[in-house]
Amino acid sequence: MFTGIIEDLGTIEKLDRADGNLHITVHTAITNELKIDQSVAHNGVCLTVVGITGDTYTVTAIQETLNKTNLGLLKEKEFVNIERAMKLGDRLDGHIVQGHVDQIATCVDILTEDGSWIFTFEYDKDLNNITIEKGSITVNGVSLTVVNSQLNRFSVAIIPYTFNHTTFKTFQIGTTVNLEFDVIGKYVKRLNDLKN
Score class of each variant (00 low, 15 high):
168 F>K: 07
133 E>A: 11
3 T>M: 03
106 T>R: 15
139 V>R: 08
69 T>P: 06
85 A>E: 07
63 Q>V: 03
122 E>A: 01
120 T>G: 13
52 I>K: 06
79 F>W: 11
160 P>G: 07
6 I>M: 07
128 N>Y: 08
79 F>P: 09
138 T>F: 12
32 N>G: 12
111 L>S: 14
36 I>W: 13
47 L>Y: 04
126 D>A: 14
19 D>C: 09
106 T>M: 07
109 D>W: 05
171 F>D: 15
123 Y>I: 01
185 G>P: 04
49 V>A: 02
137 I>F: 07
49 V>R: 01
140 N>M: 09
128 N>V: 06
61 A>Y: 03
49 V>Y: 05
74 L>D: 05
121 F>P: 03
110 I>L: 00
157 A>Y: 10
77 K>R: 14
72 G>H: 00
121 F>A: 02
15 L>P: 02
47 L>S: 12
105 A>L: 10
60 T>L: 03
7 E>L: 06
76 E>Q: 11
183 V>K: 06
32 N>W: 02
161 Y>C: 01
10 G>W: 09
39 S>A: 08
77 K>Y: 14
113 E>F: 01
119 F>R: 07
77 K>I: 08
20 G>C: 08
11 T>N: 12
99 G>C: 06
189 K>E: 14
146 V>W: 00
81 N>M: 02
85 A>G: 05
65 T>K: 07
183 V>N: 05
9 L>D: 00
10 G>Y: 10
117 W>C: 04
190 R>H: 15
186 K>F: 08
100 H>V: 11
42 H>I: 15
133 E>R: 03
166 T>C: 09
104 I>K: 13
193 D>H: 10
46 C>Y: 03
46 C>T: 04
155 S>W: 02
71 L>M: 04
95 H>V: 12
63 Q>C: 09
48 T>I: 12
3 T>N: 02
27 H>K: 12
107 C>H: 04
189 K>H: 15
116 S>T: 01
124 D>R: 05
6 I>C: 03
119 F>M: 14
143 S>P: 08
196 N>I: 15
176 T>F: 08
55 D>V: 01
63 Q>R: 10
84 R>C: 10
20 G>A: 14
28 T>F: 08
68 K>Y: 05
129 N>C: 14
162 T>C: 06
123 Y>Q: 02
176 T>P: 05
117 W>V: 00
25 T>I: 00
77 K>H: 09
130 I>M: 06
27 H>M: 05
93 D>Y: 10
147 V>R: 04
188 V>Q: 10
162 T>A: 09
75 K>E: 09
103 Q>I: 15
18 A>W: 03
61 A>P: 06
125 K>S: 15
154 F>D: 00
29 A>G: 15
171 F>E: 14
2 F>D: 04
9 L>K: 09
43 N>W: 09
153 R>F: 15
